[in-house]
Amino acid sequence: MQTKTAYDFSLPSLDGSSLTLGDYKNHPLLLVNTASKCGFTPQYEGLQAVWSRYKKQGLIVIGIPSNEFGHQEPADNKEIAAFCHKNYGVSFPMAAKSPIKGNGRIPLFQWLAEQGGLLSLPRWNFYKYIINRQGQLATWFTSLTPPVSKRCVMALEKTIYDF
């Protein structure tokens, strides 16, 4: 069976359990590849703000740490969790550190590449992927677009309130 939606994927979580996206079926998702030692790392604050603002409307924010861009996530999963909580108060779900580019990328990022095309492939940390309630890629943003920017918030709200 071919995977057709984001809800068909599971990821290991930072705490060692499984982060099953199917548990969030019919919820909009904001998926972000993250890193703790990047110039864009302060976007964790914006991701937490978006999560806090829209989680009651069903939005699920998921951070997916990766060490593939400038080796800016050298920490292990336990250290990543502590860093995110201590420095940014992160309370949204976080996947375990995962490969997200090239032939070894996790299946979720292979699917995102197929859905969004070549330009949607992350070329640095903090690419943002908005998944609609049907589990399809609605839009994506590069690292340069903060999660609290007008463009990103408008896309999130369109996805959140589009039943």
Rank of each mutant, 00 (worst) to 15 (best):
A6Y: 01
A6F: 09
Y7V: 04
Y7E: 06
D8L: 00
F9P: 00
S10Q: 14
S10V: 08
P12Y: 03
P12K: 09
S13W: 02
L14G: 03
L14K: 02
L14E: 02
D15Y: 05
D15E: 11
G16L: 12
G16K: 05
S17C: 05
S18T: 15
S18R: 14
L19H: 05
L21D: 10
L21A: 07
G22K: 10
Y24C: 07
K25W: 08
K25E: 14
K25Q: 13
N26H: 14
L29V: 08
L29N: 09
L29W: 11
L31T: 02
L31W: 03
T34D: 07
A35M: 14
S36E: 08
K37F: 10
C38Q: 10
C38D: 15
G39M: 10
G39N: 04
G39H: 08
T41A: 07
T41C: 09
Q43G: 09
Q43W: 12
Q43N: 14
Q43L: 14
Y44D: 09
E45P: 00
E45F: 08
E45C: 06
Q48M: 13
S52R: 13
S52M: 04
S52F: 03
Y54M: 12
K55E: 15
K55C: 12
K56L: 06
Q57E: 15
Q57M: 09
G58T: 14
G58D: 12
V61F: 08
V61P: 05
I62T: 09
I62M: 10
G63T: 08
I64R: 14
I64Y: 06
P65D: 10
S66I: 05
N67Q: 11
F69P: 03
G70H: 12
Q72Y: 00
P74A: 08
P74F: 07
N77C: 02
K78R: 12
E79I: 04
E79A: 14
A81G: 06
A82L: 13
A82S: 11
F83C: 06
Y88M: 08
G89N: 11
G89A: 07
S91H: 12
P93K: 02
M94R: 04
M94Q: 13
A95Y: 05
A96E: 13
A96V: 01
K97F: 01
K97S: 09
I100P: 00
G102E: 09
N103E: 15
G104S: 12
G104H: 13
R105N: 10
I106A: 08
I106T: 05
P107M: 03
L112A: 01
E114V: 00
G116Q: 09
L118G: 10
L119Q: 05
L119D: 11
P122S: 09
R123W: 00
R123M: 06
W124P: 03
N125A: 02
Y127K: 00
Y129R: 01
I131T: 01
N132K: 05
R133S: 04
R133Q: 15
Q136A: 07
L137K: 00
L137F: 06
A138Y: 13
A138G: 00
W140K: 07
W140Q: 09
F141V: 03
F141P: 08
T142S: 11
S143I: 04
T145S: 12
P147I: 03
P147H: 07
P147F: 11
S149T: 00
K150V: 02
K150C: 01
R151A: 01
C152G: 04
M154S: 14
E157F: 04
K158C: 01
I160Y: 10
Y161I: 06
F163V: 12
F163L: 13
